[in-house]
Design a protein around this nucleic acid. Structure first.
Lengths: 211, 211
DNA sequence: TAGATTTTGTGACGCTTTTCACAAGCGGCG
DNA sequence: CGCCGCTTGTGAAAAGCGTCACAAAATCTA
């Protein structure tokens, strides 16, 4: 039951949650730390340590009740409610994300779309009309948007971010390949595909060299 | 000059490389570890430590020659050559990636597209014709594909992976929200947007609670 | 050339995270 | 009811990473 939680623990919790949903679909009612570990490329001790940061949810000799643990994880991760999301950038990536079914099904509801391209402004995507960047602040404030998905070119990203921060945004999922400057109370997650490809080419290259 | 390199070091190297390109565009010829640190949300000591895993590239009192360090980093990350990439899954995400300019410009060349949808098979994307999954092995072997981008639904992902592995694939950029089982000589990088969104909602939720 | 100045490369240190090991708790069975 | 097998929760040990501090090396100045 500690204070500061490692980022790696959070990533694993997210994975445990997905495993629990699978296990629930299989009709099982309890699960052990060892089985959760097997499904998540980790160890039983790690699973128990991760969970112990937040309390004791299991029964000794028995394991964890699947539905109960699932509920607790959803609560811990803050996904036991709907988050209103703004999509900024209606290009290829924005469009792919908008139609990504996992978002809606997991409680992330897109309530606004913004793009700077005059050709796109006013267009309808589903029930949403694409708005111009000037409206970012008012959209965030009037719709109660807490998260934005930032899918704009690198050179526009910081400026857009500043507008969103000014309007009180709480978190940013950033697809632009730059390090955004934000005040400490704003959370940022970077999606950097080039970096991940480079991690792959490093691993492959190294493997040939190393041994 | 050590053996096992931390994943976080690789991520930072990728970022240093991007900073070096910016610095080169600005016409500068040398750079200090301190400046690289400032651009990368890290410290000068960390930059030097990261680089020291691979050798000594700087000159004391002077710093690093931008073009030389850039070349060395490209070499270390394995991006001093063209990688042939296969795109598996021609849905929304696949399409967005296919048109993502950063891939081509950074030496990742898409040489094949595969999809299971009979409606899509045979269609032309640029100069490439979409192929059926049955051809995965032969495409990988005949075209010399080393990396695949896996953008298919979760339930198809493992099966496709097995085919690719059988054909000798070396690395997989995985967009499916499952942990792929692969032999140890195959590198996998997971892109897990739901996990990143959950990390955001955790950070925001926690922030309100914590202090 | 000598001394001042700058900046790297790296061993030592300290914090964070993972792994280990086991006592404590729970259900089942004879 | 008491013992047995199983699994959790958690301190303690180990490993992994990042930070610090400084000698070494290079340039600059006079």
């Amino acid at each position: 039951m500690s204070r500061r939680i490692p980022a790696s623990t959070i990533r694993r919790l997210s994975h445990y949650l997905r495993s629990l949903e699978d296990i629930e679909d299989e009709g099982r009612e309890t699960v052990s730390s060892e089985e959760l570990a097997d499904r998540g490329q980790t160890t039983a001790a790690q699973v128990r340590k991760d969970l112990s940061h937040f309390g004791s949810f299991g029964k000794r000799g028995l394991g964890y009740r699947v539905d109960e643990l699932r509920g607790r994880l959803r609560q811990i991760l803050g996904v036991d409610r709907v988050w209103k999301v703004g999509l900024i950038g209606a290009g290829r990536i924005g469009s792919a994300l908008f139609e990504y079914p996992a978002f809606e099904s997991r409680g992330y509801e897109c309530v606004a779309i913004v793009d700077a391209d005059p050709e796109k402004i006013g267009a309808l995507w589903g029930a949403l009309r694409i708005r111009p960047p000037e409206e970012i602040e008012s959209l965030i404030e009037s719709l109660g948007i807490e998260l934005v998905i930032l899918a704009v070119p690198a050179q526009a990203a910081q400026q857009i971010t500043d507008r969103a921060v000014r309007a009180g945004i709480k978190g940013i999922l950033n697809f632009a390949p730059i390090r955004l400057k934000v005040p400490p109370h704003v959370a940022v997650e970077d999606v950097n595909l080039v970096m991940q490809l480079e991690a792959l080419s490093f691993a492959i290259t190294q493997r040939g060299l190393g041994e």
